[in-house]
Every structure is written in structure tokens, then in C-alpha cells.
Amino acid sequence: MQEAVKAKDESVIIVKPEAKPKYKWEYVKKNYFLYLLIAPAVILTIVFKYVPMYGAIIAFKDFSTIKGIWGSEWVGLKHFQEFLTSPNFETIFMSTLKLSLYGLLLGFPIPIVLALMLNQVRRAAIKKNIQLFLYAPNFISVVVIVGMLFIFLAPTGPVNHFITFLTGKPVMFMSDPEYFRSIYILSGIWQAAGWSSIVYVAALANVDPELHQAATIDGANILQRMIHIDLPALKPLMAIIFILGAGGIMAIGFEKAFLMQTAMNLPTSEILPTYVYKIGLQAGDYAYSTAVGLFNSIINVILLVVVNFVVKKLNEGEGLY
């Protein structure tokens, strides 16, 4: 409780600040309800994120389902060496890296551009309709998206009808390895760009309208206001999202790549997550597949640290941590 003590001059009141608890447990006891609110999230994170890390031990053992994790023979880095020296390593690793890197570089600026354009729409009804149109693809299942791709890009599909009319022969989009990355990345941008722009739209809502009014009076056009007012407001958010995106560059989604795979496009569609699935669940080599997955996670952590360091240097000390 705050105390108000009157001095000799009754017009002067000295307010003593509330004393802070001496020990952390006193603060926890006083604010126990706040800790109860976050307890379910903490428990779920521990159970589903940290407890499964115990299974990573399999990567260093010759795992046998009969002997169990602790009973299996310890082999150290044997599985990692097998993967790094296997003939498939370079192809799979580069396919994963290229698919993720191109997706990040091409997909990162699109939500920013959409947010800047949406911010210039002044009529609320029109803006809501445009947002509904842009956000809708995010709620379409990946299975449905891939099914749509196979239908539209099939040799007898509508896209090839137009191509056949112009060139005389269809293009085998879904079986030609040359087109896999372009189809994967462009369809992913179409599906996620609108939804990803939400955070940028929310950040632009906090920009003081008086800045735009003053810039308009000074003769600045829309493009100049975007560059000198809106983009600086988005800069910290852009840095964080880019760091997170770069840190997860090897954590590309499994479902879409696996669904788009055909026997003909494997040279570009076989990536680390699909390789782990085939080796681990289909072939039953759990130790080797765990080693490949752990290698993938280590690369992600290294990229996260490196990109965060670089961005902090270029962004005046502003980074993820």
C-alpha cells in the first residue's frame, strides 16, 4: 500500500513508493494468478518440445527397438559420418537449401509490399474486402493446394490448353524437375503472403497520421511517404521476421514437398524432411534418420545465430536477442 505523509505545510504531500518484495518468491506469491495463467503454456512447451529431445540420443546409438534407447550400443558420430559421406548428401542438402533460400528471398518482400499498399486504401469497406481476398488462401489445406496444382498444371489442364494452343505441345510441369522449385515457391507465396502481411499492417496502424499530413504539405508523393515514413516504422519488425525466417531456412515444410513429389522430379523435390521420413518411417532406420534430423536442426541454430549477428551489425544493434 502506498502511504501519503503530510508535512508541516499541509499543502505538500510526500508519496512514498511501494516497497518492492525482498525475495522473488514473495513476488511470485503475491502474483500467483499470473503464473497460473501461463502455467498451461509452459507445461505444454516442456512436454511437447523439451521432453522429446530425449529421443535425440538415438542419433548416437545403433538403435534397436528390442534393446531400447539405453540398451542400444553407443556408436558416436557414425550415423552423421554416413550421411555426410553418402552420395545423396550433396543433392539433398542443396535441394533443401535452394528451395528454402529462394523461398525466403522471393517471399520476404511480398507481404511488406502488400501491407504498404493496403495502408494506402482509405475506405474501410474496400480494405476489408481486399484483406479477405488476400487472407483466404492461407486457410486452404496443403492437400487441396497440391491437388489444385495437379489439376491446373496437368497435361490436359487449363494452363496447358493455353500453352498447347500457342506452342503445339504441353509442358510437363509436375514431372519435370526444372519446374518443381518455381511451382513450390510461387504457390507458397500466393498462399501465405496475404496472411503474413497482417503483422506489417498492424505496425503501420501505429504510424502517426500527422507525419503523412506534414509530408503531403511538403509535397511528398505516395512513394516518398512510403519510403521515408512507413518503411522506417517497419524496420525493427522486418529485422525480427527476417532473422526468424533465416533461422528456419532448413526447416522447410514436409507435407507439400512430399505431396508434390513424383518419380520424375525427385532430383529437385527430394529434401531433408522427405528423406528423413523415407529412411526413418518407411525403411525403419530410426537412428540414421534421427541423425539426419538432428543435423538439420543444428544447421538451423547456426544460421539463426549468424544471421542475428549480421542483422544486429547492419541494423544499429537491433536484432532478435
Rank of each mutant, 00 (worst) to 15 (best):
E3A: 04
E3S: 07
V5L: 05
A7G: 10
A7H: 05
K8S: 14
K8N: 14
K8F: 15
E10Y: 08
V12S: 03
V15E: 04
K22E: 14
N31E: 15
Y32G: 06
L34P: 10
Y35S: 11
L36Q: 08
I38M: 13
T45K: 04
T45N: 04
I46D: 07
V47L: 03
K49P: 09
V51G: 08
Y54S: 06
F63D: 01
T65Y: 06
G68R: 14
G68E: 14
S72K: 11
V75P: 01
G76V: 15
F83Q: 04
T85C: 02
S86L: 00
L97R: 03
P109M: 15
I110V: 15
P111E: 12
P111G: 13
L114Q: 13
A115M: 08
A115Y: 04
M117N: 03
R123W: 10
R123H: 13
A124S: 14
N129M: 14
N129G: 15
I130D: 10
Q131I: 05
Y135C: 11
I145D: 02
G147L: 08
G147F: 08
F150H: 09
F150T: 06
I151Q: 10
F152R: 07
L153P: 02
G157F: 07
G157W: 06
V159R: 05
F162S: 13
L166S: 10
L166I: 14
G168V: 15
P170N: 03
M174R: 07
M174H: 10
M174Q: 09
S175P: 04
E178T: 12
F180C: 11
Y184F: 15
L186Y: 11
S187H: 04
W190P: 01
W195L: 10
S196G: 10
I198F: 13
A202T: 12
A202C: 09
L204H: 03
L204E: 03
E210Q: 09
L223K: 02
Q224P: 00
M226H: 00
M226L: 08
L231I: 15
A233L: 02
L234N: 05
M238L: 05
A239H: 06
I240T: 15
G245L: 08
G247I: 03
M250R: 01
A251D: 05
I252F: 00
F254C: 02
F254T: 00
E255N: 14
A263Y: 12
E270W: 00
L272D: 00
P273L: 05
P273F: 06
Y277Q: 10
K278F: 08
K278L: 12
G280K: 06
A283S: 08
G284I: 01
G284P: 03
S289H: 00
V292K: 00
N296I: 09
I299R: 02
V301N: 03
L303P: 07
K313D: 11
N315D: 08
E318W: 08
Y321K: 00
